[in-house]
Every structure is written in C-alpha cells, then in structure tokens.
Design a protein around this nucleic acid. Sequence first.
RNA 1: GGAGAGUUGGCCGAGUGGUCGAAGGCGCACGCCUGGAAAGUGUGUAUACCUCUAAAGGGUAUCGAGGGUUCGAAUCCCUCACUCUCCGCCA
Length: 428
Amino acid sequence: MIEVRILRENRQLAVEGLLKRGLKSADQTIQKILDLDDQRKQLQTQMDELLRRVNETSDEIGALYKQGRGAEAGEAKKMVGEWKAEIAGFQTTMNETQSLLETTLLSLPNIPHASVPAGQNEADNEIIEVHDDYMVALPEGSKPHWELMEEYDLVDLALGAKITGSGFPVYKGQGARFQRALIQFFLDEAVAAGCLEIIPPFVVNADSARGTGQLPDKDGQMYYTERDDLYLIPTSEVPLTNMFRGDILDAADLPRRLTAYSPCFRREAGSYGADVKGLNRLHQFDKVEMVVISLPENSYDVLDWMVNHTKTLLQKLELPFRILRLCGGDLGFTSALTYDFEVFSVAQKRWLEVSSVSNFETYQSNRLKLRYRNSEGRTQLLHTLNGSVLALPRIVAALLEINQKEDRIDIPEVIKPYTGFECIEKVD
RNA sequence: GGAGAGUUGGCCGAGUGGUCGAAGGCGCACGCCUGGAAAGUGUGUAUACCUCUAAAGGGUAUCGAGGGUUCGAAUCCCUCACUCUCCGCCA
C-alpha cells in the first residue's frame, strides 16, 4: 500500500513511475485518493469536535448531579443525545470513506524505481549480466532432467500424484539427500553472510497474508484451510516479514537480516506442456529465502548486497546464469525494483527463473506498520526486501542436466560435503 | 476436546461507573550532586489521526479485539482471539 504522503508530495513522479507499468489511469486514481483523504480529514475534524462536546458535557452532568441539580442535568442529557445521533452519522460516512480509500490505495501497485525500464512483459526485461563461464554444450543423447529423475529414481511425480495430486513430487534416496544437501548449503551460506536463521510456521493467518500483500490480490493462489481460517505459505517471506508486523524497531538494530528454509505451496495453475514438465513448475517446492528490514536510506545498498549474495551462490554451484532487471510490466505488484536470476537449462535449452530479489520500499511496511524511530524521535516506515537464495526445483533440474555423464550425475564440489557422496549413480 | 483463571504503558503492577491515558515501582533519557562513578535527587518517558504551526500548543481515539448498556466505561453485559493451570489425547 503506497503512502498517501508520497502521492501527495511526489504526484508527478508517481504518475510517471506507474506509467512504466502501463498504468494509464494512475493520475485519476491518485486524484481520487487525495480527494478521499481530504474528505476523511474533514470528517475527522468535525467528528472530533462533536466528541469533544460530548465529553465536556458529560463531565458537567456528573458535576450537576453532585450538586443536586437534576433538572439541568436532564437538559444536558438531551443535547448529548442529539450530538450522539449526529456522531453516528459521521461515523458511518467516515467508515465508508475509509474503506473506499483503502480499497483504492490497494488497487495501486508500488511505484517502480527510477532504474526500472518501461515495458509490457518479460520480453522487455533488461538483461544486465550474463555469466556463461560454465556454459557447456551437451553431447548427443543427453537428457532433460525429467528423464534423469526417472532413470536414477530421484524424484517421483507419479507417486506424488497418487498420494496428493500433480505437482507434489516425492523425492527419493539420493534425490532426497541431494535436495536436503542443497538446502543445508544455502542456509549455511546465508548465515555466514550475517542472517539469523529462522524456522517459521508454514501456515499463517489472514492478517499476515494481508501484511505482505498476498491478500487481497493473490487470494486464489494460496491454499486455504477453511476450518481454521489459515493459509499455507506461498513463500517464507510471509512469516518472516510478518515477524515484524506492528513493530517499532531501534535504528541501531538495523538492518535485520533473516533466512529460512520452507516448503512453498502455490495453487497457481500455469500453462501446460514443456513449461510445467518435470520440476519446472510445482504446487509444493522447497526454497531458502532471505528477508531484510532496512533503513530507507540503505535499502538499495542492501538490494545490491542480496543480488551479490545470490550471484555468489550460483557461481559456487558452477551454473550458467543471467541477471535481469524486470521491466514495469513484469514487476510484481508490491515491488519497486526486482532482479530475477535465471539459470540455463542446457537440456531444455532455455532459461529458468530461480530467484527473485526485490526491494519493496515502504509498500509492505505501510500495511505492516513496521517502523523505526529516526534521529528526531519521529516514527518512520522502514523498507523491506526479500529474495530467494535459492528456489530448489529448477536449480536441481539445471544441476542434473548439466552434470550428467554417461553412467552417473556429478555433484557440484561445494555440495559434496553435504551429500556425503561424490555422484549420483543408478540403483538396481 | 473438557473445566477454571487471566489479558492494563518498554517491563512489573494498582485500579469495579465521572476528578483515569491511567497510582506505584523497574527500566530508559536528560539534569543536579561527584575529581569520576555508585548511591541520592529532580524532570521527562505510548501510538495513531485531526487541527495549528517557525516552534510550542489544542482536540479525538486506544487499558487483548469487536459490539452493547449509560449523559459518562479500564471498570457493567455479549461475542471472539490469545495466555496460563488442571484433566483428556498425542509426536
């Protein structure tokens, strides 16, 4: 949720920024928001005045009774009654105005950062770095990861479909161990970089889902347990960021850097065919996430730091990858600036997104009411950032494909201490 | 799942209809005292919104959340959430 203050003070910049998302009606929407906000203020003033009179008169009534002047008190009561009816009217209008204001604000996505290129979709994303040091051309007869998974009995999608449904894989044997090793490696790297490791709840309440912006706009994409009114997390960003909901942090304690592994649950029914084959797209997948709460003035340095961290991970895994700066049209609703990391799937011959690193500026913290006290002693909204470090399935897919040999699949050097085996071999 | 007890400011804790945004204590900040510190002592110490503004000030709301009774609610009533204790169940 954008701060009204920003819209008021930097209206032109906001309109220009939102235009990069292809949002042409932004100026009208902003006008509506400012009008509603003005209306809200006016109502507040009038209502407060009435409430003041009620409070004052109530005190007087008490005093009159003590003095035994019941008749006068009765008169005063009548007046209060009238005011109260008036207040009730104001209250109704106020509530309507407030909720309309909020709905309108929620309909507005975050204002893109100055560096975000205009554009409609992923084709317009800006490729800012390509790391092809580890790019290889696979020999004839090489296989895509879904064939390798089956051949080496690492991941069983059919079995998952039997137990749960499609998109819920079963990892087995060396496949399970490999997955766990990668998770462990990613967590260790994040902790070494200064993050506090967290194991959060994997199910959250509606307040949390709202806090990070999954509600109301991504309602249909989350699994929901009606009986208890809880949501399965689509990413650990949700519980991690909501740890700070409503908090006023001490500037000296910032930045707060957190990391967590969690399974992620997503209902999203995507496209069909090769796009969703194998591990490309799943309803349940594993991810290690990083969340940072930062002072506003430092948040873009933090973003660079996070990008650098992710870059290092991919280099250590010896994968070919590239970094994209998302264009306005592809940018997530709540993000001001997002870098996507894509690894190259050498067998599928296409890029797969494995990480998304974003700065939300105050968009999330405004809804979370996550603040700090500045040097003047005033509370001010903080910036929130998060990024995947990394999402597992596509990393696994890319690693299996690029490291396949005739009779085995090699394990990246840095992962060997975690797997305890040097390569994946066929089991009889 | 059953029974009972609770939820007050950063923390502890008083407060059963008006003078309560809330005693007292702790903590914290600043000052005095001191060569310096401790002790002592004084002052201050919530959040949001509105108004005003150079600053200060003023108003409104908030005592778990929401609703109700009342001229007036931290205090009475209802609903919900959470915490604790005991019992049950369980990894």
